[in-house]
């Protein structure tokens, strides 16, 4: 397939890029790694008249320890996150999830900013960042704002981002001592997107779970916190029985928007979400060790 025709801009500064977005507001799409947008354009599911390629802008690809937390430039690729010692040691689930996205070619091109902005219902990164917490920094021509990750994913393929904004950075908070993380995914055998994926960030103190953030992707219309699961985990000693009980509620928040396709019925997605919630939480608890 070939895309429909479009005008292409490759600005070298953020100011230039955000100006283009303002000028062609509603018509322009931002092109980052291109591994979600280009396939949609080739199938003509997306036919933007203007593409603003932000790949030529210096300074959007970095992993930086800032104060307590870590800041990741929006053009940082999956491959860079998967192989970063900072990410591997501080957010092992992000490194692990990044290493499991599609194949190496995609991981060399696809970016954290692109993944979050696209908000594919089966993307890995939205759930992982949701479980870690933190925020997305978005800029327009005139201003910049920070959007808490819990308010970022709005709906199917829809985020809180305005169409004149570009994600410049993702800020991740420092994780408390005694925190373990894990991401467990069951992938579609064709596309390798998540049929379901569960990200878990669990803090254990004195043998008891003091904080838990669990997020689910693939099962519903967007990456979603499994708050009922989290509530069951908090304040308890995480025995296998408690984990299993908590995991049984992992799909509760997405049950109204369950996906169903030729690869997995809704019922199977719920089941596999529970299975992978157990795996992710158990692994996170073990890592919290």
């Amino acid at each position: 397939m070939v895309t429909s025709s479009f005008d292409y801009f490759a600005p070298t500064t953020l100011d230039e890029a955000t100006s283009l977005l303002s000028r062609y507001r509603g018509e322009a799409k931002v092109l980052a790694g291109g591994h979600s947008l280009i396939p949609m354009m080739k199938l003509r599911l997306a036919e933007p008249g203007i593409l603003v390629d932000i790949g030529q802008i210096d300074g959007l690809s970095y992993i930086r320890e800032d104060g307590d937390g870590v800041s990741i430039g929006s053009m940082t690729t999956y491959r860079e996150m998967a192989t970063s010692s900072v990410i591997q040691s501080r957010y092992p689930l992000l490194a692990d999830a990044s290493s499991k996205v599609a194949d190496l070619q995609v991981r060399n091109r696809g970016t954290i900013g692109g993944s979050l902005a696209h908000s594919d219902p089966a993307g890995d990164i939205p759930a992982v960042v949701l479980a870690i917490g933190g925020s997305v920094v978005a800029r327009t021509r005139r201003s910049s704002r920070e959007i808490a990750i819990d308010r970022f994913q709005v709906d199917l393929l829809t985020t809180a981002l305005h169409d004149n904004e570009i994600i410049t950075e993702i800020k991740l908070p420092s994780l408390a001592a005694g925190t373990g993380t894990a991401y467990s995914k069951f992938h579609n055998p064709a596309s390798h997107y998540a049929i379901t994926g569960v990200a878990a960030v669990v803090t254990i103190s004195g043998g008891v779970c003091t904080e838990a953030r669990v997020a689910v992707t693939g099962a519903g219309d967007k990456a979603t916190r499994a708050r009922r699961t989290e509530r069951i985990l908090r304040g308890k000693e995480l025995t296998p029985a408690v984990i299993r009980r908590a995991a049984e509620r992992a799909a509760a928040e997405v049950e109204d928007t369950l996906n169903e396709d030729i690869h997995a019925t809704a019922e199977y997605r719920v089941h596999m979400t529970q299975v992978h919630a157990v795996k992710a939480i158990e692994a996170a608890v073990a890592a919290a060790g």
Binding site: L43, A190, S191, H263
Partner: peptide, 8 residues
């Protein structure tokens, strides 16, 4: 199953 995204 009209593409490699769905044909495994």
């Amino acid at each position: 199953s009209g593409s490699l995204m769905d044909y495994a």
